[in-house]
Amino acid sequence: MNDVETLGDVVAVAFLLLGALLCLTAGIGLLRFPDVLTRMHAGTKPQVLGVLLIMVGAAIRLQGWSATWMLLLVALFQMLTAPVSAHMVSRVAYRRRHVRRDRLLVDEQRSTGKDRVYRGDEPADAPPEEPGPALAESLREDREDREDRGDGVR
């Protein structure tokens, strides 16, 4: 029963092995890369593809609709949730300055990133705790940004 019989089985096992290989590269990248942001690329990225490959492989092998639907659901959840958690962690990582500045080629956020009003993980349209001062601060930042850019361009 556990033998590889058809072409489908060969494809499925190839998918499973490829997915497993991608999981290994995720581990290697996690260990080799220099800062949190690049490690997140390594940790979450080959896995989106790896998990998809493994789910497809397992679905081919299992041959039962019930299991196939559930694997489809897992793949869907993974595709929907992986970007959200990656974004939340990376945003906090950037604000906590877990970035090797000397390994960055370009940082376009830093030149305009003087945001002192929103600094945690709150959505940008969340009401600030002290609306008056926060608004004044935000407007002043925008003005400073514009002046900075004007200086830079002209």
């Binding site: 991608l22 590269t25 290697i28 890369f33 990225k45 080959p46 960055l104 080629l105 376009e108 305009t112």
Partner: peptide
């Protein structure tokens, strides 16, 4: 997904590793 996945996987295992990253708007 497939082409970039292969590229990132190769970047993690090759001896020279990654060079520089960037933050762009």
């Amino acid at each position: 997904l497939v082409s970039s996945g292969a590229q990132v996987a190769w970047q993690t295992v090759r001896p020279s590793g990654i060079d520089r990253s960037a933050i762009i708007r």
